[in-house]
């Protein structure tokens, strides 16, 4: 199993150069059965990461480009009258796939954004009164441009909360960038990618994540972290219990990716920024710049030993 994981990470790494920690985070998120939000400037490789993941995981994949005139029916599907059978026939929308890339999700209106809500939370959609289940596994990888760019509708806190992680990709380091510039077209590399993992293996991995051992001492640490966000004055509001659960789930997956059967504090610290940054706001932060400084502070202030 270990080889499978390493192989997967390596495969994605051939497309997205020099971003191994981010790939690991994304994988941890998927192994925890969570949805991933990638926030960065255009052209940083958000879509590439999503496509690469879809390919190596062997999942059916669609990409929905969110625009300001996108309607919910464009995502979920619509019933069309069929002359032959003289009845309405449901045409499933792009959401009926295992891996959805919701590109530039914050460019669409809240109405269309919320069409994703039920799908992400319940893994089912309700169209025209009928509830239809979505395929398993079901991942949403959404990308968004930074909020301060033009033509964006900021995702509300409630919707941000549905994403298990939010990561940023960042600029590549010079070595990776040089390799990128010298190498062949990424699109071709992407097309050559082969699935490294079978759906059965993926399901097994997801189950294994839940088996990872969590000691009392570690739960103490997580509770201290959560309590700190609730008490310290610089936090506008504390982490919710769902936030704490998300932190624990991601830490378990991270431990598994590290090849360990138990969680250590470093696992929590590794996933913490990605898991909690979009769930917190600084008291003095009125324009929503994010909580990057806040999570660093949280990490440095809370002792791992009770």
């Amino acid at each position: 199993m270990r080889d499978v994981i390493d192989n997967t990470i390596a495969q994605v790494g051939t497309v997205l150069l020099g971003k191994e920690p981010r790939i690991r985070l994304a994988l941890a998120c998927l192994l925890s059965r969570g949805h991933l939000l990638i926030e960065d400037l255009p052209g940083m490789g958000k879509t590439t990461l999503a496509q690469a993941l879809a390919r190596v995981l062997g999942l059916s994949y669609t990409r929905i480009q969110f625009t300001s005139d996108l309607l919910p029916a464009d995502i979920l599907g619509v019933s069309v009258f069929d002359k032959n059978s003289a009845s309405f026939q449901f045409h499933p929308g792009p959401i009926f796939n295992q891996l959805i890339l919701a590109d530039e999700i914050n460019r669409t209106t809240p109405k269309s954004q919320s069409a994703l809500l039920e799908a992400m939370e319940e893994q089912q959609v309700t169209v025209e009164g009928a509830t239809r289940p979505l395929p398993t596994p079901f991942f949403v990888i959404a990308t968004q441009n930074p909020n301060n760019q033009g033509g964006t509708f900021a995702l509300p806190e409630s919707q941000l909360d549905r994403f298990l992680m939010r990561i940023e990709l960042g600029y590549p380091d010079p070595v990776a960038e040089r390799q990128l510039l010298r190498g062949e077209d990424r699109r071709q590399v992407l097309n050559r990618l082969q699935p490294t993992i079978t759906p059965a293996q993926l399901a097994a991995l997801q189950d294994q994540c839940q088996q990872v051992k969590v000691a009392e001492a570690l739960l103490d640490y997580i509770q201290r972290l959560v309590a700190y966000t609730r008490q310290a004055p610089e936090f506008a509001y504390g982490l919710s219990p769902r936030g704490a659960l998300a932190l624990l789930a991601c830490a378990k997956s991270w431990a598994l990716l590290e090849g360990r059967g138990h969680v250590v504090p470093e696992d929590v610290q590794a996933v913490l920024p990605a898991v909690v940054e979009h769930r917190l706001r600084e008291t003095a932060d009125f324009s929503g710049h994010g909580a990057a400084g806040l999570t660093q502070r949280l990490l440095s202030k809370v002792d791992i030993i009770g």
Binding site: V264, P265, E266, S300, K301, V302, D303, I304
Partner: peptide
């Protein structure tokens, strides 16, 4: 450091 994990 207070927030430094054992491995680090």
């Amino acid at each position: 450091m207070p927030g430094e994990g054992p491995q680090a």
